[in-house]
């Protein structure tokens, strides 16, 4: 069953579209957890599958057979891995791991900058105002987490909108959304096939915070206005941004439209979304199963080979 080892590598091709299709049918905070969890799981099993492929290739090296106390010429029952496959697996593993380590270093620098900024503040107040006319609002993780807003942003909003903005940022901090985003981003660094999950996750995280804001102000239209007016103010205030030049409708109008629509809890749980959920769960289970099986098979092949080597001595 050594073809099983290839399955975790190809799984994202099916699982990523299924996850993207399922996310809009879930409550935003559930969607966020599902997407981040699935990204980490898929990255872990594809990395493990690459390790197994590398081990299968390496097992054919005669010197290792001597050192590992098994008969040279490969493991019994393990199909000979083409040198090209083994080399490709080594390369993919090295690239994935080095990308992940680099991204992890970048994020930990970002987090430690955020923490040291938080420690540099005189007290434990939640809201930190930057005297800056350009409209900005951020949630800054730390102990305690801070909400950093420019005076320009506070000027641009009315009382209910300010309350919605604070509740939105508070929800990011309380939900540890930066942890979900970093985890998924590292997973995508390890396996580029997962990259298309990131925009869906970031949208789910924003929607989750928007719903918290709507619940806090008790008025979905007001929360929608807060998001829209903040975005328009930032658009007018900031200079042209390269990322803003893309065509089509981006996440902010979608968030506003979602807030103007009925709350997600009242959305019908359709047959389609249940079917997609079953498919997603099935694919992930299949991936885990394939991974476990190939590891177990490889392990028992090594033991058999060692036993045979011992007898032939």
């Amino acid at each position: 069953m050594y073809f099983a080892v290839h399955l975790p590598l190809l799984l994202p091709l099916a699982a990523v579209p299924a996850l993207r299709a399922l996310a809009p049918h879930l409550a935003p905070h559930r969607a966020a957890w599902m997407l981040a969890g699935a990204a980490v799981l898929l990255a872990a099993i594809s990395t493990l599958a690459l390790l197994v492929l590398v081990a299968m290739g390496v097992s054919e090296v005669p010197l290792l057979a001597v050192l590992g106390h098994y008969t040279p010429g490969g493991l019994p029952g393990v199909p000979g891995t083409a040198p090209l496959t083994a080399c490709a697996a080594v390369a993919a593993l090295a690239v994935g791991l080095s990308r992940t380590v680099r991204r992890a270093a970048l994020h930990s620098r970002g987090l430690s900058d955020a923490l040291s900024y938080g420690r540099g503040l005189a007290d434990d107040r939640e809201l930190v105002v930057l005297p800056d006319r350009s409209p900005l609002a951020y949630a800054l993780p730390g102990r305690p987490g801070r909400i950093v807003v420019s005076s320009g942003m506070l000027h641009a909003l009315d009382p209910a909108e300010r309350r919605a903005l604070l509740a939105h940022e508070r929800a990011h901090l309380a939900g540890h959304h930066h942890v979900l985003l970093i985890a998924a981003e590292l997973a995508a660094a390890a396996n580029p096939l997962l990259h298309r999950l990131l925009p869906v996750l970031s949208y789910a995280v924003e929607r989750s915070a928007d719903e918290a804001a709507a619940a806090e102000v008790g008025d979905r239209t007001k929360a929608a206005h807060a998001v829209a007016r903040a975005a328009l103010a930032a658009h007018a205030g900031g200079g042209p941004h390269p990322a803003a030049l893309h065509a089509g409708t981006g996440p902010v109008p979608q968030r506003v439209a979602a807030l103007l629509a009925p709350p997600p809890a009242r959305m019908p749980n359709t047959h389609t979304s249940r079917a997609v959920a079953v498919v997603v769960a099935g694919l992930l289970a299949l991936g885990i199963g394939a991974c476990v099986e190939s590891v177990v098979d490889l392990h028992s092949a090594v033991e058999t080979a060692q036993a045979a080597y011992g007898e032939s001595d």
Binding site: G110, A137, H225, A234, H235, A243, A247, P251, V252, V256
Partner: peptide
């Protein structure tokens, strides 16, 4: 690095701006 700092609103395209103004006008 902005992934660490969840921003309230991301950048808008010109289409986004038109879509937002239309949504605000309708509601």
């Amino acid at each position: 690095r902005h992934i660490v700092l969840a921003r309230f609103v991301s950048d808008l395209s010109d289409d986004d701006e038109q879509a937002l103004l239309r949504l605000l006008g309708e509601h």
